[in-house]
Amino acid sequence: MFLPMILSAITYVVYALDKHAAQTGRWRTQETTLHLLELLGGWPGAWVAQQTLRHKSRKPGYRVAFWTMVLLHVAALGAWLWTRR
């Protein structure tokens, strides 16, 4: 139960650091890294970061990839739960 919350918090922080880097012209976090964090379970934190920080919320290609990661995560969780019954 705690792992998804930790992953979401980590993902939110990574988004915030990337937003700050974008604003200050510093090294950015790769989008593949952000998507991996989302896929591993940090997608709720990513969604909150997109809404509150207004980061990565306007790029259509990124949003499609984000929602794909959410669907893949939910499908994997559903498959895992299905096999455990």
Rank of each mutant, 00 (worst) to 15 (best):
M1K: 13
M1D: 15
M1T: 09
F2G: 15
F2A: 14
L3Q: 12
P4G: 06
M5N: 07
I6D: 01
I6W: 11
L7M: 15
S8K: 03
S8R: 01
A9D: 02
A9G: 14
I10L: 15
I10G: 01
T11D: 01
Y12T: 01
Y12N: 00
V13C: 05
V14E: 00
V14Q: 02
Y15I: 05
A16Q: 03
A16L: 05
L17Y: 08
L17T: 08
L17M: 13
L17W: 14
D18V: 02
K19F: 07
K19L: 04
H20V: 11
A21I: 11
A21K: 02
A21D: 06
A21E: 08
A22C: 10
Q23T: 09
T24Y: 10
G25R: 01
G25L: 07
R26V: 06
W27C: 09
W27K: 10
W27M: 07
T29V: 10
T29S: 15
Q30P: 13
Q30I: 05
E31C: 12
E31P: 09
E31V: 12
T32V: 07
L34N: 05
L34V: 03
L36E: 05
L36S: 06
L37D: 00
L37P: 00
L37N: 02
L37T: 00
E38V: 00
L39H: 09
L40F: 11
L40P: 04
L40Y: 05
G41T: 05
G42Y: 00
G42A: 02
W43K: 00
W43Y: 13
P44Y: 04
P44K: 06
G45H: 02
G45P: 12
A46L: 06
A46E: 02
A46D: 09
V48W: 08
V48H: 06
A49Q: 01
A49Y: 01
A49C: 09
A49D: 00
Q50D: 02
Q50L: 00
Q51P: 03
Q51D: 12
T52W: 14
T52N: 05
L53K: 09
L53V: 03
H55I: 01
H55L: 04
S57C: 04
S57R: 06
S57P: 02
R58S: 14
R58G: 15
R58M: 05
K59H: 13
G61P: 04
G61R: 10
G61E: 02
G61L: 11
G61T: 10
G61A: 06
R63N: 11
R63I: 12
R63W: 04
V64C: 12
V64G: 09
V64E: 11
A65Q: 10
A65F: 03
F66A: 04
F66N: 07
W67K: 13
W67P: 01
T68G: 08
T68N: 14
M69Y: 03
M69K: 07
M69G: 03
M69P: 01
L71W: 12
L71R: 04
L72K: 03
V74E: 13
V74C: 10
V74Y: 14
V74F: 04
V74T: 15
A75M: 14
A76C: 09
L77R: 15
L77M: 08
L77K: 10
L77P: 01
G78A: 13
G78K: 13
A79H: 08
A79I: 07
A79Q: 12
W80E: 10
L81Y: 08
W82V: 13
T83P: 09
R84A: 14
R84W: 06
R84G: 08
R85N: 15
R85I: 14
